[in-house]
Design a protein around this nucleic acid. Structure first.
Lengths: 212, 212
DNA sequence: TAGATTGTTAATCGATTAACAATC
DNA sequence: TAGATTGTTAATCGATTAACAATC
Protein backbone atom coordinates (compact mmCIF):
# COMPACT_ATOMS: atom_id res chain seq x y z
CA UNK A 1 0.00 0.00 0.00
CA UNK A 2 2.95 2.34 0.34
CA UNK A 3 3.42 4.66 -2.63
CA UNK A 4 6.49 4.53 -4.78
CA UNK A 5 7.96 7.97 -5.29
CA UNK A 6 8.46 8.22 -9.04
CA UNK A 7 6.09 7.65 -11.94
CA UNK A 8 7.60 8.14 -15.39
CA UNK A 9 5.88 10.29 -18.00
CA UNK A 10 5.38 7.24 -20.20
CA UNK A 11 3.27 5.70 -17.45
CA UNK A 12 1.43 8.95 -16.70
CA UNK A 13 0.33 9.19 -20.33
CA UNK A 14 -1.20 5.73 -20.06
CA UNK A 15 -3.10 6.45 -16.84
CA UNK A 16 -6.00 8.29 -18.51
CA UNK A 17 -6.59 5.25 -20.76
CA UNK A 18 -6.69 2.97 -17.73
CA UNK A 19 -8.92 5.43 -15.96
CA UNK A 20 -11.55 5.48 -18.72
CA UNK A 21 -11.51 1.74 -18.99
CA UNK A 22 -11.83 1.16 -15.27
CA UNK A 23 -14.60 3.75 -15.07
CA UNK A 24 -16.51 1.79 -17.67
CA UNK A 25 -16.04 -1.49 -15.81
CA UNK A 26 -17.01 0.21 -12.57
CA UNK A 27 -20.18 1.57 -14.12
CA UNK A 28 -21.07 -1.91 -15.28
CA UNK A 29 -20.69 -3.19 -11.73
CA UNK A 30 -17.61 -5.29 -12.41
CA UNK A 31 -15.52 -5.66 -9.24
CA UNK A 32 -12.28 -7.24 -10.36
CA UNK A 33 -10.11 -7.30 -13.44
CA UNK A 34 -6.84 -9.10 -14.20
CA UNK A 35 -3.84 -7.59 -15.88
CA UNK A 36 -4.30 -10.09 -18.68
CA UNK A 37 -7.87 -9.01 -19.35
CA UNK A 38 -7.03 -5.33 -19.20
CA UNK A 39 -4.04 -5.82 -21.47
CA UNK A 40 -6.04 -7.65 -24.11
CA UNK A 41 -8.79 -5.07 -24.20
CA UNK A 42 -6.42 -2.12 -24.27
CA UNK A 43 -3.73 -3.43 -26.56
CA UNK A 44 -0.92 -3.55 -24.00
CA UNK A 45 0.91 -6.53 -22.55
CA UNK A 46 -0.09 -7.95 -19.18
CA UNK A 47 3.46 -7.39 -18.04
CA UNK A 48 3.25 -3.71 -18.80
CA UNK A 49 -0.07 -3.34 -17.01
CA UNK A 50 1.39 -4.90 -13.86
CA UNK A 51 4.56 -2.87 -14.16
CA UNK A 52 2.47 0.30 -14.52
CA UNK A 53 0.21 -0.41 -11.56
CA UNK A 54 3.22 -1.29 -9.52
CA UNK A 55 4.48 2.27 -9.63
CA UNK A 56 1.88 3.10 -7.04
CA UNK A 57 0.16 1.28 -4.19
CA UNK A 58 -1.01 -2.29 -4.15
CA UNK A 59 -4.53 -2.65 -5.46
CA UNK A 60 -3.80 -6.05 -6.87
CA UNK A 61 -4.21 -9.33 -5.09
CA UNK A 62 -2.40 -12.46 -6.17
CA UNK A 63 -4.66 -15.05 -7.72
CA UNK A 64 -7.51 -12.56 -7.93
CA UNK A 65 -6.64 -9.46 -9.90
CA UNK A 66 -7.22 -5.76 -9.26
CA UNK A 67 -10.09 -4.11 -7.40
CA UNK A 68 -11.70 -2.02 -10.14
CA UNK A 69 -13.25 0.74 -8.07
CA UNK A 70 -10.30 1.40 -5.77
CA UNK A 71 -7.79 1.28 -8.60
CA UNK A 72 -9.82 3.76 -10.60
CA UNK A 73 -10.03 6.11 -7.64
CA UNK A 74 -6.32 5.84 -7.01
CA UNK A 75 -5.49 6.67 -10.62
CA UNK A 76 -7.92 9.58 -10.55
CA UNK A 77 -6.25 10.87 -7.45
CA UNK A 78 -2.74 10.55 -8.91
CA UNK A 79 -3.83 12.45 -12.00
CA UNK A 80 -5.48 15.03 -9.79
CA UNK A 81 -8.83 14.82 -11.55
CA UNK A 82 -10.58 14.75 -8.21
CA UNK A 83 -9.59 18.37 -7.80
CA UNK A 84 -10.98 21.37 -9.63
CA UNK A 85 -8.44 23.78 -11.03
CA UNK A 86 -9.77 27.04 -12.39
CA UNK A 87 -8.85 27.83 -15.97
CA UNK A 88 -9.52 30.45 -18.61
CA UNK A 89 -9.91 30.14 -22.36
CA UNK A 90 -8.25 32.55 -24.76
CA UNK A 91 -9.76 32.69 -28.22
CA UNK A 92 -13.37 31.72 -28.82
CA UNK A 93 -13.34 30.74 -32.49
CA UNK A 94 -14.61 27.35 -33.64
CA UNK A 95 -11.94 25.45 -31.80
CA UNK A 96 -12.25 27.54 -28.67
CA UNK A 97 -15.98 26.94 -28.64
CA UNK A 98 -15.48 23.20 -29.05
CA UNK A 99 -12.95 23.10 -26.22
CA UNK A 100 -15.14 25.18 -23.93
CA UNK A 101 -17.99 22.75 -24.45
CA UNK A 102 -15.68 19.80 -24.08
CA UNK A 103 -14.12 20.91 -20.83
CA UNK A 104 -17.55 21.67 -19.40
CA UNK A 105 -19.04 18.32 -20.40
CA UNK A 106 -16.04 16.11 -19.68
CA UNK A 107 -14.77 17.00 -16.29
CA UNK A 108 -11.12 16.12 -15.83
CA UNK A 109 -9.86 18.31 -13.04
CA UNK A 110 -10.51 21.70 -14.61
CA UNK A 111 -13.32 24.17 -14.34
CA UNK A 112 -13.70 26.88 -16.96
CA UNK A 113 -14.02 30.21 -15.25
CA UNK A 114 -13.63 32.75 -18.04
CA UNK A 115 -13.55 33.08 -21.84
CA UNK A 116 -11.75 35.88 -23.65
CA UNK A 117 -11.60 37.00 -27.26
CA UNK A 118 -10.32 40.01 -29.14
CA UNK A 119 -13.05 40.15 -31.75
CA UNK A 120 -15.93 42.56 -31.18
CA UNK A 121 -18.18 40.18 -33.04
CA UNK A 122 -17.54 37.45 -30.48
CA UNK A 123 -17.26 39.38 -27.21
CA UNK A 124 -20.57 39.25 -25.38
CA UNK A 125 -21.65 35.94 -26.91
CA UNK A 126 -22.65 33.07 -24.64
CA UNK A 127 -20.46 29.96 -24.86
CA UNK A 128 -20.91 26.97 -22.58
CA UNK A 129 -23.10 29.17 -20.39
CA UNK A 130 -20.44 31.88 -20.08
CA UNK A 131 -20.23 35.32 -21.58
CA UNK A 132 -17.16 36.00 -23.69
CA UNK A 133 -15.14 38.88 -22.24
CA UNK A 134 -12.81 41.36 -23.96
CA UNK A 135 -9.06 41.26 -23.31
CA UNK A 136 -9.33 44.57 -21.49
CA UNK A 137 -10.88 42.67 -18.60
CA UNK A 138 -8.24 39.95 -18.49
CA UNK A 139 -5.99 41.45 -15.85
CA UNK A 140 -8.79 42.22 -13.42
CA UNK A 141 -10.35 38.83 -13.96
CA UNK A 142 -7.14 36.93 -13.35
CA UNK A 143 -6.32 38.91 -10.24
CA UNK A 144 -9.73 38.20 -8.79
CA UNK A 145 -10.39 34.64 -9.92
CA UNK A 146 -6.81 33.38 -9.84
CA UNK A 147 -7.07 30.71 -12.53
CA UNK A 148 -4.06 28.36 -12.65
CA UNK A 149 -4.27 27.28 -16.28
CA UNK A 150 -4.90 28.98 -19.61
CA UNK A 151 -6.21 27.31 -22.75
CA UNK A 152 -4.70 28.83 -25.86
CA UNK A 153 -7.01 28.76 -28.87
CA UNK A 154 -5.75 31.99 -30.38
CA UNK A 155 -4.21 32.22 -33.84
CA UNK A 156 -0.52 31.49 -34.22
CA UNK A 157 0.34 35.15 -34.61
CA UNK A 158 -1.21 36.13 -31.27
CA UNK A 159 0.31 33.42 -29.09
CA UNK A 160 3.47 35.18 -28.03
CA UNK A 161 1.72 38.37 -26.94
CA UNK A 162 -0.96 36.44 -25.12
CA UNK A 163 1.46 34.15 -23.28
CA UNK A 164 3.68 37.07 -22.28
CA UNK A 165 0.65 38.77 -20.74
CA UNK A 166 -0.51 35.61 -19.01
CA UNK A 167 2.92 34.82 -17.66
CA UNK A 168 3.20 38.33 -16.27
CA UNK A 169 -0.13 37.75 -14.52
CA UNK A 170 1.30 34.66 -12.87
CA UNK A 171 -0.19 31.85 -14.96
CA UNK A 172 2.21 28.95 -15.27
CA UNK A 173 0.23 26.20 -17.02
CA UNK A 174 -0.96 26.17 -20.60
CA UNK A 175 -3.01 23.90 -22.78
CA UNK A 176 -1.83 24.95 -26.17
CA UNK A 177 -3.96 24.39 -29.28
CA UNK A 178 -2.26 27.04 -31.37
CA UNK A 179 0.07 25.86 -34.10
CA UNK A 180 2.84 27.72 -32.45
CA UNK A 181 5.18 25.77 -30.24
CA UNK A 182 5.44 27.90 -27.16
CA UNK A 183 8.96 27.45 -26.10
CA UNK A 184 8.79 28.80 -22.62
CA UNK A 185 11.73 30.90 -21.61
CA UNK A 186 11.08 29.96 -18.03
CA UNK A 187 11.45 26.68 -16.25
CA UNK A 188 8.51 26.86 -13.93
CA UNK A 189 5.87 26.40 -16.62
CA UNK A 190 3.88 23.43 -17.78
CA UNK A 191 2.79 23.27 -21.40
CA UNK A 192 0.62 20.56 -22.89
CA UNK A 193 0.53 20.89 -26.66
CA UNK A 194 -2.23 19.61 -28.90
CA UNK A 195 -0.90 20.11 -32.38
CA UNK A 196 -3.67 19.16 -34.77
CA UNK A 197 -1.57 19.71 -37.86
CA UNK A 198 1.18 17.45 -36.53
CA UNK A 199 -1.34 14.76 -35.84
CA UNK A 200 -2.77 15.19 -39.34
CA UNK A 201 0.69 14.96 -40.89
CA UNK A 202 1.54 11.80 -38.99
CA UNK A 203 -1.75 10.33 -40.14
CA UNK A 204 -0.90 11.42 -43.66
CA UNK A 205 2.35 9.49 -43.49
CA UNK A 206 0.60 6.38 -42.34
CA UNK A 207 -2.17 6.70 -44.94
CA UNK A 208 0.41 7.16 -47.68
CA UNK A 209 2.29 4.12 -46.42
CA UNK A 210 -0.92 2.08 -46.28
CA UNK A 211 -1.89 2.97 -49.84
CA UNK A 212 1.49 2.55 -51.50
CA UNK B 1 21.36 10.68 -51.34
CA UNK B 2 20.19 7.09 -51.18
CA UNK B 3 17.25 6.57 -48.87
CA UNK B 4 17.47 4.36 -45.83
CA UNK B 5 14.61 1.94 -45.70
CA UNK B 6 13.25 2.32 -42.21
CA UNK B 7 12.12 5.37 -40.24
CA UNK B 8 10.90 4.68 -36.72
CA UNK B 9 7.61 6.07 -35.45
CA UNK B 10 9.48 8.16 -32.88
CA UNK B 11 11.24 9.94 -35.72
CA UNK B 12 8.08 10.26 -37.83
CA UNK B 13 6.34 12.04 -34.97
CA UNK B 14 9.14 14.60 -34.89
CA UNK B 15 9.07 15.26 -38.62
CA UNK B 16 6.07 17.63 -38.56
CA UNK B 17 7.88 19.78 -35.99
CA UNK B 18 10.95 19.98 -38.20
CA UNK B 19 8.73 20.66 -41.18
CA UNK B 20 7.05 23.69 -39.59
CA UNK B 21 10.32 25.06 -38.41
CA UNK B 22 12.04 24.66 -41.76
CA UNK B 23 9.03 26.17 -43.51
CA UNK B 24 9.39 29.22 -41.34
CA UNK B 25 13.11 29.53 -42.06
CA UNK B 26 12.42 29.01 -45.76
CA UNK B 27 9.80 31.74 -45.75
CA UNK B 28 12.31 34.06 -44.14
CA UNK B 29 14.77 33.32 -46.94
CA UNK B 30 17.26 31.46 -44.77
CA UNK B 31 19.21 28.95 -46.83
CA UNK B 32 21.14 26.87 -44.35
CA UNK B 33 20.73 25.68 -40.80
CA UNK B 34 22.96 23.58 -38.56
CA UNK B 35 21.83 20.72 -36.37
CA UNK B 36 23.01 22.73 -33.38
CA UNK B 37 20.85 25.72 -34.24
CA UNK B 38 17.80 23.59 -34.98
CA UNK B 39 18.28 21.65 -31.78
CA UNK B 40 18.50 24.75 -29.63
CA UNK B 41 15.39 26.33 -31.11
CA UNK B 42 13.35 23.15 -30.94
CA UNK B 43 14.48 21.74 -27.63
CA UNK B 44 16.22 18.64 -28.97
CA UNK B 45 19.89 17.71 -28.93
CA UNK B 46 22.05 18.30 -32.01
CA UNK B 47 22.88 14.62 -31.97
CA UNK B 48 19.26 13.67 -32.23
CA UNK B 49 18.63 16.07 -35.08
CA UNK B 50 21.51 14.58 -37.07
CA UNK B 51 20.42 11.07 -36.21
CA UNK B 52 16.89 11.89 -37.35
CA UNK B 53 17.92 13.46 -40.64
CA UNK B 54 20.23 10.58 -41.27
CA UNK B 55 17.31 8.18 -41.60
CA UNK B 56 16.73 9.58 -45.03
CA UNK B 57 18.89 11.14 -47.78
CA UNK B 58 21.82 13.45 -47.38
CA UNK B 59 20.75 17.06 -47.27
CA UNK B 60 23.51 17.97 -44.93
CA UNK B 61 26.97 19.05 -45.87
CA UNK B 62 29.91 18.82 -43.54
CA UNK B 63 31.13 22.15 -42.28
CA UNK B 64 28.04 23.89 -43.66
CA UNK B 65 24.80 22.48 -42.31
CA UNK B 66 21.53 21.52 -43.98
CA UNK B 67 19.91 23.06 -47.03
CA UNK B 68 16.68 24.43 -45.61
CA UNK B 69 14.48 24.32 -48.70
CA UNK B 70 15.46 20.88 -49.92
CA UNK B 71 15.27 19.34 -46.48
CA UNK B 72 11.82 20.77 -45.96
CA UNK B 73 10.65 19.41 -49.29
CA UNK B 74 12.10 16.01 -48.53
CA UNK B 75 10.35 15.84 -45.16
CA UNK B 76 7.10 16.95 -46.77
CA UNK B 77 7.45 14.23 -49.33
CA UNK B 78 8.18 11.55 -46.72
CA UNK B 79 5.13 12.60 -44.73
CA UNK B 80 3.11 12.61 -47.93
CA UNK B 81 1.82 16.14 -47.43
CA UNK B 82 2.56 16.93 -51.05
CA UNK B 83 -0.31 14.63 -51.97
CA UNK B 84 -4.01 15.26 -51.53
CA UNK B 85 -5.98 12.46 -49.96
CA UNK B 86 -9.74 12.83 -49.98
CA UNK B 87 -11.43 12.59 -46.61
CA UNK B 88 -14.86 12.89 -45.08
CA UNK B 89 -15.97 14.27 -41.74
CA UNK B 90 -18.53 12.50 -39.57
CA UNK B 91 -20.24 14.65 -36.98
CA UNK B 92 -20.55 18.40 -37.44
CA UNK B 93 -20.90 19.62 -33.86
CA UNK B 94 -18.58 22.26 -32.43
CA UNK B 95 -15.51 20.10 -32.71
CA UNK B 96 -16.43 18.86 -36.19
CA UNK B 97 -16.86 22.43 -37.33
CA UNK B 98 -13.49 23.41 -35.90
CA UNK B 99 -11.75 20.47 -37.56
CA UNK B 100 -13.45 21.15 -40.90
CA UNK B 101 -12.19 24.71 -40.80
CA UNK B 102 -8.78 23.60 -39.62
CA UNK B 103 -8.25 21.01 -42.32
CA UNK B 104 -9.36 23.48 -44.97
CA UNK B 105 -7.07 26.26 -43.76
CA UNK B 106 -4.04 24.16 -42.83
CA UNK B 107 -3.36 21.87 -45.71
CA UNK B 108 -1.42 18.80 -44.66
CA UNK B 109 -2.12 16.19 -47.30
CA UNK B 110 -5.88 15.95 -46.90
CA UNK B 111 -8.77 17.53 -48.72
CA UNK B 112 -12.20 17.54 -47.13
CA UNK B 113 -14.71 16.22 -49.62
CA UNK B 114 -17.86 15.63 -47.57
CA UNK B 115 -19.42 16.37 -44.18
CA UNK B 116 -22.08 14.19 -42.59
CA UNK B 117 -24.28 14.52 -39.54
CA UNK B 118 -27.30 12.75 -38.13
CA UNK B 119 -29.06 15.79 -36.73
CA UNK B 120 -31.82 17.38 -38.81
CA UNK B 121 -30.89 20.71 -37.31
CA UNK B 122 -27.37 20.50 -38.75
CA UNK B 123 -27.92 18.76 -42.10
CA UNK B 124 -28.07 21.35 -44.85
CA UNK B 125 -25.88 23.86 -43.03
CA UNK B 126 -22.79 25.25 -44.74
CA UNK B 127 -19.48 24.46 -43.03
CA UNK B 128 -16.11 25.39 -44.53
CA UNK B 129 -17.94 26.00 -47.79
CA UNK B 130 -19.55 22.57 -47.84
CA UNK B 131 -23.12 21.52 -47.23
CA UNK B 132 -23.64 19.02 -44.43
CA UNK B 133 -25.21 15.82 -45.76
CA UNK B 134 -27.41 13.25 -44.00
CA UNK B 135 -26.10 9.74 -43.28
CA UNK B 136 -28.54 8.36 -45.83
CA UNK B 137 -26.27 9.73 -48.54
CA UNK B 138 -23.06 8.32 -47.07
CA UNK B 139 -22.92 5.08 -49.04
CA UNK B 140 -23.53 6.74 -52.40
CA UNK B 141 -21.06 9.50 -51.64
CA UNK B 142 -18.27 7.15 -50.61
CA UNK B 143 -18.80 4.93 -53.63
CA UNK B 144 -18.56 7.89 -55.95
CA UNK B 145 -15.90 10.04 -54.28
CA UNK B 146 -13.79 7.25 -52.82
CA UNK B 147 -12.39 9.11 -49.82
CA UNK B 148 -9.51 7.28 -48.12
CA UNK B 149 -9.82 8.73 -44.63
CA UNK B 150 -12.66 9.51 -42.23
CA UNK B 151 -12.57 12.05 -39.42
CA UNK B 152 -14.60 10.90 -36.45
CA UNK B 153 -16.18 13.73 -34.49
CA UNK B 154 -19.29 11.81 -33.49
CA UNK B 155 -20.26 11.18 -29.87
CA UNK B 156 -18.77 8.22 -28.10
CA UNK B 157 -21.96 6.22 -28.33
CA UNK B 158 -22.12 6.47 -32.11
CA UNK B 159 -18.51 5.54 -32.93
CA UNK B 160 -18.90 1.80 -33.25
CA UNK B 161 -21.87 1.97 -35.60
CA UNK B 162 -20.22 4.63 -37.71
CA UNK B 163 -16.88 2.83 -37.99
CA UNK B 164 -18.58 -0.46 -38.85
CA UNK B 165 -20.40 1.26 -41.69
CA UNK B 166 -17.26 3.04 -42.90
CA UNK B 167 -15.18 -0.12 -42.75
CA UNK B 168 -17.79 -1.97 -44.77
CA UNK B 169 -17.56 0.81 -47.35
CA UNK B 170 -13.82 0.25 -47.62
CA UNK B 171 -12.41 3.09 -45.54
CA UNK B 172 -9.25 2.06 -43.73
CA UNK B 173 -7.90 5.24 -42.15
CA UNK B 174 -9.40 7.20 -39.30
CA UNK B 175 -8.65 10.40 -37.47
CA UNK B 176 -10.45 9.78 -34.23
CA UNK B 177 -11.59 12.65 -32.01
CA UNK B 178 -14.24 10.69 -30.18
CA UNK B 179 -13.49 9.65 -26.62
CA UNK B 180 -13.86 6.09 -27.65
CA UNK B 181 -10.72 4.13 -28.36
CA UNK B 182 -11.52 2.39 -31.58
CA UNK B 183 -9.81 -0.89 -31.22
CA UNK B 184 -9.90 -2.06 -34.78
CA UNK B 185 -10.65 -5.70 -35.20
CA UNK B 186 -8.76 -5.62 -38.45
CA UNK B 187 -5.08 -5.23 -39.13
CA UNK B 188 -5.25 -3.21 -42.30
CA UNK B 189 -6.45 -0.02 -40.62
CA UNK B 190 -4.69 3.13 -39.52
CA UNK B 191 -6.08 5.06 -36.57
CA UNK B 192 -4.73 8.33 -35.30
CA UNK B 193 -6.33 9.22 -31.99
CA UNK B 194 -6.69 12.72 -30.60
CA UNK B 195 -7.98 12.19 -27.10
CA UNK B 196 -8.67 15.60 -25.64
CA UNK B 197 -9.67 14.25 -22.26
CA UNK B 198 -6.45 12.26 -21.98
CA UNK B 199 -4.46 15.34 -22.82
CA UNK B 200 -6.42 17.33 -20.23
CA UNK B 201 -5.82 14.66 -17.58
CA UNK B 202 -2.11 14.57 -18.25
CA UNK B 203 -2.04 18.33 -17.97
CA UNK B 204 -4.01 18.03 -14.74
CA UNK B 205 -1.33 15.74 -13.34
CA UNK B 206 1.40 18.17 -14.20
CA UNK B 207 -0.52 21.17 -12.87
CA UNK B 208 -1.20 19.35 -9.62
CA UNK B 209 2.49 18.44 -9.40
CA UNK B 210 3.52 22.03 -10.10
CA UNK B 211 1.24 23.45 -7.43
CA UNK B 212 1.97 20.96 -4.66
C1' DT C 1 44.67 25.57 -44.68
C1' DA C 2 41.81 25.99 -40.40
C1' DG C 3 37.25 25.90 -38.68
C1' DA C 4 32.87 24.09 -38.81
C1' DT C 5 29.71 20.69 -38.97
C1' DT C 6 28.11 16.41 -40.69
C1' DG C 7 27.67 11.15 -40.73
C1' DT C 8 28.21 7.29 -38.11
C1' DT C 9 29.68 4.21 -34.52
C1' DA C 10 29.73 3.20 -29.67
C1' DA C 11 27.91 4.06 -24.99
C1' DT C 12 24.13 5.10 -22.21
C1' DC C 13 19.77 5.37 -20.75
C1' DG C 14 15.03 4.14 -20.25
C1' DA C 15 11.07 1.54 -21.34
C1' DT C 16 9.05 -2.86 -22.51
C1' DT C 17 8.77 -7.76 -22.18
C1' DA C 18 9.75 -12.30 -20.16
C1' DA C 19 10.02 -15.22 -16.38
C1' DC C 20 9.03 -17.01 -12.12
C1' DA C 21 8.76 -17.12 -7.14
C1' DA C 22 5.41 -15.42 -3.79
C1' DT C 23 0.84 -15.81 -2.27
C1' DC C 24 -4.08 -15.29 -2.35
C1' DT D 1 -4.79 -27.99 -1.81
C1' DA D 2 -4.56 -26.55 -6.76
C1' DG D 3 -5.16 -22.80 -9.86
C1' DA D 4 -4.75 -18.16 -10.77
C1' DT D 5 -2.58 -14.05 -10.86
C1' DT D 6 0.25 -10.63 -8.78
C1' DG D 7 4.86 -8.35 -7.60
C1' DT D 8 9.40 -8.06 -8.88
C1' DT D 9 13.78 -9.17 -10.89
C1' DA D 10 16.35 -10.01 -15.02
C1' DA D 11 16.71 -9.84 -20.11
C1' DT D 12 15.70 -7.46 -24.17
C1' DC D 13 14.81 -3.98 -27.04
C1' DG D 14 14.83 0.62 -28.82
C1' DA D 15 15.75 5.36 -28.54
C1' DT D 16 18.78 9.04 -27.10
C1' DT D 17 23.21 10.96 -26.29
C1' DA D 18 28.27 11.24 -26.70
C1' DA D 19 32.26 11.11 -29.32
C1' DC D 20 35.06 11.61 -33.11
C1' DA D 21 36.80 10.67 -37.71
C1' DA D 22 35.48 12.25 -42.31
C1' DT D 23 35.12 16.12 -45.16
C1' DC D 24 33.29 20.38 -46.90
Amino acid sequence: MQKKQYISMAVIRRLPRYYHFLKDLDRRGILRVSSKELAEKMGFTASQVRQDFNCFGGYGQQGYGYAVHQLREEIGSILGVDRSHKCILLGAGNLGKAIATHITNNFAGFELSGIFDSSERIVGMQIAGKQVLPYSELQNFVQQQKPVMAILCVPRSAVEDVTDALYALGIRSYWNFSQFDIHMKYKDTVVENVHLTDSMMTLCYRVTELID
